[in-house]
Structure formats: C-alpha cells, structure tokens
C-alpha cells in the first residue's frame, strides 16, 4: 500500500464524519425554526386576559382560551385516572408473570396498542362511548386518551420493575409480607422514578393528541366543566382555529400553540428531573 492510498482513505473517513455530523445536526434546524416561529408568533398574544376568557365570535378581536385550558386539564386528568392504575397494575403483572402464556399475549397486545394510529382509537371511543351514551362527551375523549397512555405506562412500569434486583422482593417476602404489600410498599416505591417518568411521558404525549378527540370530546366554544358534555381542548382549539380563514382566530391558535408547547416541554423537562432526583440508590 502506498502512502497516497492511505491518505485518500483517511481523508475519506474525515469527509464521512463531517457529512454525518452535518446531516445529524441538520435535524435540529427545522425544530429550531418551528419552535422559534411559533414562539415569535404566539408569545405576543398571551396575556392574562388570554388565559382567563373564552374565544370571541368571528369578527371580534381578543378573546382567550380558558375553555380549552380547562378542558385539556379535565380530559387529561380523567384519562390519567383511568390509565395510571390499570397501566401500573398491568405493568406489575407483566414483570411478575414474565413467562406465562397469558403474559406473552398481553405483551403482544401492548405492543400492538402502542402502534395503533390515534385516529383509530378515536373511532373506537366513538363506538364504545359516544354512540351508546348518545352524544359527544369529554369522558369519551378521556377514555380514548387513556387507551393511548396505557402502553407507555405499562411498558415503563414493566421495564423499571424488571431491572430491580430480585433480592429486594425476597427481603420483603422473607419478612412475611403479603404479595400486594411487597409490591406497593417495597418494589413500586423503589422503582417509582421510572414509573413516574413513564406516566409523565404518557401525559406529555396525549396532551398534544387531537385526532382521538375529534369524534369524542368534539370541541366546545364555551367554558364547560361537565365531562358528560362536549368539551374543548388545547390541541383541538389549535386545529379548529388554525384551519379557519380568520386572522383573529389564527392569532388565538398561535397563542394556544405556545401554551401547548410550553406544557409539553415542561412535562418533558420535569420527567428528566424526576428520573435524576428520585432515583433510589440501590
């Protein structure tokens, strides 16, 4: 091999590294553009009035998004109420019964559920709740979102608990503790950071979901606290007003986008902090 050839190969390696780096960081550019643009367009729309009043009809400027904020909080709260207990219990089931047949199928179904498009979940909630109950309701939206949360909560619970050493459980069993106390008093508290971060991720994910709400919570231009009636939510409001032809409404949607973005961002940061802070040293 002559020196020229080696130089060529080393050069090629450098070029490849540079190209890879450029492509990798190119991903960040659209993200920065999107974040920058939305914050620029929306931040000026946000003030106290924006947060506490409902949207104005076409033609009037001003108005706010309180109906969507309240709606989002209520819908997500109900979804969490459904998904967190079921998710954690199912996660415990999977981590404890790892090799049984039922667990195999259960795990398969969780995998499937994770990939189901959100719009399909919307259809399902429509037929399971909206139609039987005779109308759109925030509750049906919550159920749809809960179904979307489940796989994330289950998987994170299962993965977290599986990583804990078996000596932990044995220590508890050896003290004569019944199974449920071993789980809730020892295993879950030690794995709480992992479980919580899964829960937070799940909440962050459903906060931005619109598709399952289109035919369930349906949207509502007024402030409502009744979960058996249609209800507005942040992403739904953004969708409705962003695709409307009116500038006032679009402005409202920009403001709402910033709020939604902040919400999701904070949840993600919070998740990271939890994982770091609450981690029990084994």
């Amino acid at each position: 091999m002559d020196g020229k050839n080696i130089k060529y190969r080393i050069g090629k390696s450098y070029v490849a590294q540079i190209v890879t780096t450029i492509f990798a960081f190119a991903c960040v550019i659209p993200l920065l553009f999107i974040l920058g643009f939305i914050i620029k367009a929306g931040i000026t729309k946000i003030n106290w009035h924006f947060l506490v009043s409902i949207p104005k009809p076409v033609g009037e400027s001003g108005g706010g998004i309180v109906n969507a904020l309240v709606g989002s909080i209520l819908i997500i709260f109900c979804a969490s109420l459904i998904a967190i207990p079921i998710g954690i219990l199912a996660g415990i089931y999977l981590s404890e019964n790892g090799k049984t047949r039922l667990a195999y199928w259960c795990r398969l179904c969780v995998d499937i559920l994770q990939g189901v498009p959100s719009i399909v979940i919307g259809i399902i909630a429509y037929f399971w709740l909206v139609k039987p109950l005779g109308g759109f309701s925030a509750l049906s939206g919550s159920v749809a979102l809960a179904i979307m949360m489940l796989p994330i909560v289950i998987r994170s619970t299962e993965e977290t608990l599986k990583l804990l050493p078996s000596s932990l459980q044995e220590a508890a069993f050896a003290l004569g503790m019944p199974f449920h106390r071993v789980m809730f008093k020892v295993v879950v508290p030690v794995g709480i950071s992992g479980i919580l971060s899964g829960v937070m991720l799940a909440i962050a994910r459903i906060t931005g979901e619109t598709a399952p709400l289109l035919f369930t919570a349906f949207g509502n231009p007024y402030l409502s606290f009744n979960i058996t009636k249609p209800m507005q939510s942040l992403p739904h409001l953004i969708y409705d007003y962003a695709t409307s032809p009116y500038d006032d409404w679009k402005n409202l949607a920009w403001g709402a986008s910033v709020i939604l973005l902040l919400w999701v961002l904070l949840l993600n940061i919070f998740t990271k902090l939890i994982t770091r802070k609450w981690k029990v040293q084994l």
Partner: peptide, 30 residues
C-alpha cells in the same frame, strides 16, 4: 391480608386480560 393478596393476584391477571380484550375489542369493533 391473605384475602387481600388473593384479590390482588386476581386483579393483576384481570389487568393482563384487559389488554388482550382491549385489542381484540378494537379489532372486532372495526
């Protein structure tokens, strides 16, 4: 506690079953 333990174990199994029923239910409904 022994009774609770039994109930708890059943609940866990039911939760596992619910996931399967959920997915089958989605498929069937569609």
């Amino acid at each position: 506690q022994i009774r609770t333990e039994t109930v708890f174990r059943r609940t866990l199994t039911i939760m596992g079953l619910i996931m399967i029923i959920l997915v089958l239910g989605i498929l069937l409904t569609l």
